[in-house]
Design a protein around this nucleic acid. Structure first.
Lengths: 119, 119
DNA sequence: TGCTAATGTTTCGGAAAACGAAACACAAGG
DNA sequence: CCTTGTGTTTCGTTTTCCGAAACATTAGCA
């Protein structure tokens, strides 16, 4: 599995030859399920199967690919209790919190815009 | 655009049958280039071609697909001057700012961890 | 021992998404 | 006209993801 193309700051990533940290982060975190996996680990370690169970629709193959990338990127590390967020992984918290807040506001505007929802 | 599967809060999205705003946001924003497009529009409207020019590696077909989704999601709107962020699109700013800050910290830890790196 | 269940992980064929390049459409401006 | 810049669509190829099954390992237990 040395064909690991995990985006890291400081080297070329999709959309940036210089690997600006933000671009590397966007590349890494906008891969499908990456943010979700981090989100599910926010309250403590989880094993692979429990993690899979929480992410309905996530396949194991993609899960392990993401875990590999996130591990390479040092956001996640394996431990006795399962996969766990590293310190820097944990420090994504505030950004996710902001995103959560924003999402609620977004939901408001969408509902305000289209009062009668189709069913 | 009849088969537009734009994730919106309140309806099922990838990873959530209930369409929790955060899940819908993750689904929408973790599509490739979505965050980047918003990032590039942060300082004002841009036309499609200029936008394309800024996102090296982005293809026009994907750009228009994203613009369509982001427009449906009410984050982006077309205007005289080009594609522009809506109010709610703009309000993603703080979250992106947090992400930017985090990315820099992340870069620090990566460099601290492996001073001389990959092959 | 042998069975069963839970977990960790890999494999692989098919489906969906992204890419890349070209093409079409339509305005200016020279 | 002809070029130039822009907005947009089309389509064949490549990459990524999905879905299900399989294999490995460990723990409990009759």
């Amino acid at each position: 599995m040395s064909t690991n193309r995990t985006p890291l700051p400081g080297r070329p990533v999709r959309g940036s030859k210089t690997g600006r940290p933000l671009m590397a982060a966007m590349d890494l975190l906008s891969r499908r399920w990456a943010l979700r996996i981090i989100w599910e680990l926010r309250d403590g370690p989880l094993g692979a199967r429990p993690l899979l169970a929480r992410c309905e629709g996530l396949s194991s193959s993609v899960l392990y690919q993401r875990l590999d990338e996130l591990t390479t990127a040092d956001l996640v590390a394996p431990s006795e209790a399962g996969y766990t967020l590293t310190d820097v992984g944990m420090s994504l918290g505030p950004a996710l919190h902001e995103l959560n807040i924003w999402a609620d506001a977004w939901a408001e505007t969408i509902h305000a815009r289209s009062p009668e929802q189709p069913h």
